[in-house]
Write a protein that binds this DNA or RNA. Structure first.
Lengths: 209, 209
DNA sequence: CCTGCTCTGTAACAAAAGTAACCGTACAAG
DNA sequence: CTTGTACGGTTACTTTTGTTACAGAGCAGG
């Protein structure tokens, strides 16, 4: 998705698409860049047009947990509400894959809601999606064991990158799951023994499913 | 709150309030009633005008976890989005305190969005609130130990009922925290020894804070 | 006053996850 | 080639939470 015109809700309104491009500022980011920091003020909302971003919740002591990914064509809906209410961000957003992002000033966000019903539909759809993802996360951390969550995460990453080779470190995975590196190493070893994965340096190969 | 006109967003539009009453069906419920079941179809969204409702996420095996409370004047925003997209509910809603609820058909929900900006403001505000509550829940179950979460829950209940005497059973608390009864009993005993609470049958008295 | 029910207290044990410490190995930079 | 650093493997141990099982306490209804 390199063109906002491809977004379902926007197909019926080229005018909206044009306005979006007109009022947004485009920026490019390398993997690892921080788009949005916890407690940062929000002046504009990001719409991802290329690449992928991950949204992370952090605890004061530095521990983190992955909430969800923002894929191309999607926006960070938390920024949206935060911006609307003039609040600071409750999450951190980090670039996972080289990304191109449009930043739309919050005043335009509100304006477009009044003028373009498609824009509101878009926002609602994303809201809905994020809500469900958060519910899934809650179920996972409340009821699932770490090994199952780990395997799920690997599958999700595999699906996102459309490859069964995952480039990451145990430390990374531990952060995203909100646990410690040793735990991940231990469980990965088990998964390898069970034939679920094959381990390498900075690399995990999924050998089933 | 017995009157929708008292809701911040609605003060500027008595017309909207009138319409809400006109198109809604009012029902009354006893504590323990289930307003909305997981996987139920959503034809109308509930607006609580009296009492309190709790929203619960359940796992297939019967385990549950409390998400948040819907207080008087608030609505179940999950139903809203679910209704909009013609989906089934992902959560269960149970009456905590004797409640009076207005049910507004989903088609009216969409209609009002177009006609009354206040209605949209209301929806956005609730969305925002729920989102933050979900984030808090995630932080709690990911990073906090059960004893801390238990104490938090007790304080929350105390604040909601404006009383430091909490009427509940250990079983109840365990369900809301997504853990087992023995665990809660054990931790409550510890809290009692630490002087945080005083225990009785069907009753917990908070003795500090 | 007895009976049956629900609620609570405890013990003993198992499983899962967290923590600390240490070592070897791959890899990049010099 | 050497050296420093990041990464992964492993051990030993603690803490936390889950599980099972059972006994006593309070309470309502007959």
């Amino acid at each position: 998705m390199e063109n906002l015109g491809q977004i379902t809700e926007f197909k019926s309104s080229p005018e909206l698409v044009e306005k979006l491009y007109q009022y947004s500022i485009q920026k490019n980011y390398e993997p690892g860049s921080i788009i949005l920091n916890e407690n940062a003020n929000i002046h504009s909302i990001p719409i991802v047009t290329k690449g992928m971003i991950k949204v992370i919740r952090t605890e004061e002591d530095g521990r983190e947990i992955l909430l969800y990914y923002i894929k191309s064509g999607e926006s960070c809906i938390m920024s949206f509400l935060g911006g609307l209410h003039n609040e600071t961000s409750k999450v951190k957003a980090e670039v996972e894959e080289e990304a191109e992002i449009l930043f739309l000033p919050v005043d335009k966000v509100s304006l477009f809601i009044k003028e373009y019903p498609q824009w509101l539909d878009y926002i609602f759809r994303l809201y809905h999606k994020r809500f469900e993802e958060l519910l899934d996360i809650i179920n996972a951390i409340a009821f699932k064991k770490v090994d199952e969550r780990l395997l799920n995460l690997l599958h999700k990453k595999s699906a996102l990158t459309q490859s069964n080779i995952i480039q990451t470190t145990h430390e990374q995975l531990a952060n995203e799951l909100g646990t410690a590196r040793v735990v991940v190493s231990r469980l990965l070893k088990q998964l390898e023994e069970n034939g679920n994965v094959q381990l390498g340096r900075n690399k995990i190969i999924i050998t089933e499913g």
